[in-house]
Design a protein around this nucleic acid. Structure first.
Lengths: 212, 212
DNA sequence: AATCAAACTAATAAACCTATTAAACAAACC
DNA sequence: GGTTTGTTTAATAGGTTTATTAGTTTGATT
């Protein structure tokens, strides 16, 4: 009836289906580990169709990767929990960063992995960083200076603090597959471990910036 | 003269040359990123020779990987800096772990990378872990309990503390290529950054375990 | 119903890759 | 010198892979 193209399992639905399937496969096995043939198989279409929509495999991959990157950066754009003390605010930030990763546990490994194997990705990162990091550290820097002047924390730069938090949080998920396999953890135990580890990280970070 | 086989750029020298070249190439681009043809090219020998000595590419890779793994584990077998206070001892441990990584900055990424892409590696890790971790945490655990009883540190498990240290140290090197590229660092600046970061990590860890 | 564009597929070219095979070479030994 | 043993190579089978090409299907429009 309507003149708009319908999405009925074909048409432009197909273009998205390909992106979606590629997303899942790339996340699991990375750029080199996935063939366009395999993507086509998962979508249930002809292999040439992938090239019809995205021309090259690298092109398709880039679209997937850009999405992931902007998600990762978005984790640092925090709500400004007003009225809370600096300590409580920081606690919230650490936890929300951790939780977001917990919902996308494969993401950090995927990004680091591709960063190593896939030359094009480093430029994407560079762009994203230059556009966002100064903006992100800015307000934190100010808060830290105030807190330090008030004698409530030791001297530390926003960048160092952010690196500390990301290190502790992300490393948890980088090594998760190892832990699961080596210690034979089931899903339930993994979840519990998450909570324990999250608490420990918060304690560590908050404790680590107390005045000397 | 001697009946021993001579190493004159051939013979068993060749077997080692192949391992060595494979090591460098695998470290740079991982298992999937390197072909036996390429290894042969680097060694300057025929491609079939690689299969003559190692039969399969996976076989050759495994030999390289095992070496890396045992090196990484060895970083935790610390000299027992006798006579030092616990704090000084811990400081030394963190720094020596950091320094060892600084001399092999590509190692952490390589191992994590292969762990994701290369099914056989996870079993190698499992074995290595089961053989070493309990032994490694054991003595630290005792020290931590003593220090805690004496009121000199807060309560923390050896595993958590070790994860914290490894997180902070390793993450530095995982993100190093990003930092170098994004901020356009030269070698000298990178080295300075290392020292700054090392100090910050030591401060963070020591501070983070002070009694509450 | 004829037409036209977009969506889709079959077939395949060209470039890789690993691993094997059979033959050439070299040095050591009798 | 001839034989033997281990080392090295050339050639190639058999399997991928990405990307293109040319043609078919589909469905809307006139």
């Amino acid at each position: 009836m309507a003149k708009l193209k319908e999405v009925k399992g074909g048409k432009e639905g197909m273009e998205f289906s390909i992106l979606h399937a590629a997303d899942e496969l790339f996340m699991e096995r990375g750029f080199n580990g996935v063939s366009t043939t395999e993507i086509a198989l998962k979508v249930g279409c002809n292999q040439a169709l992938i090239h019809y929509y995205y021309r090259t495999k690298a092109n398709l991959f880039q679209k997937v990767f850009e999405n992931k990157l902007s998600f990762l950066i978005s984790l640092f754009e925090v709500d400004d929990y007003k009225g809370l003390s600096f300590e409580d605010k920081l606690r919230m930030r650490i936890e929300s960063h951790f939780d977001a990763l917990a919902q996308n546990p494969k993401l950090p490994m995927f990004v680091l992995n591709e960063l190593k194997n896939n030359p094009i990705t480093i430029d994407l990162i560079k762009e994203t960083f230059n556009n966002n990091v100064p903006y992100l550290t800015g307000s934190l820097e100010k808060e830290l200076q105030e807190e330090h002047k008030a004698g409530r924390i030791r001297k530390i730069s926003a960048l160092d603090l952010m690196i500390n938090i990301t290190s502790l949080n992300i490393f948890t998920f980088l090594t998760l597959p190892i832990m699961e396999y080596v210690f034979g953890l089931d899903q339930e135990t993994t979840k519990e471990m998450f909570e324990v580890r999250k608490k420990e990280i918060v304690t560590t970070v908050l404790n680590s910036i107390r005045p000397i």
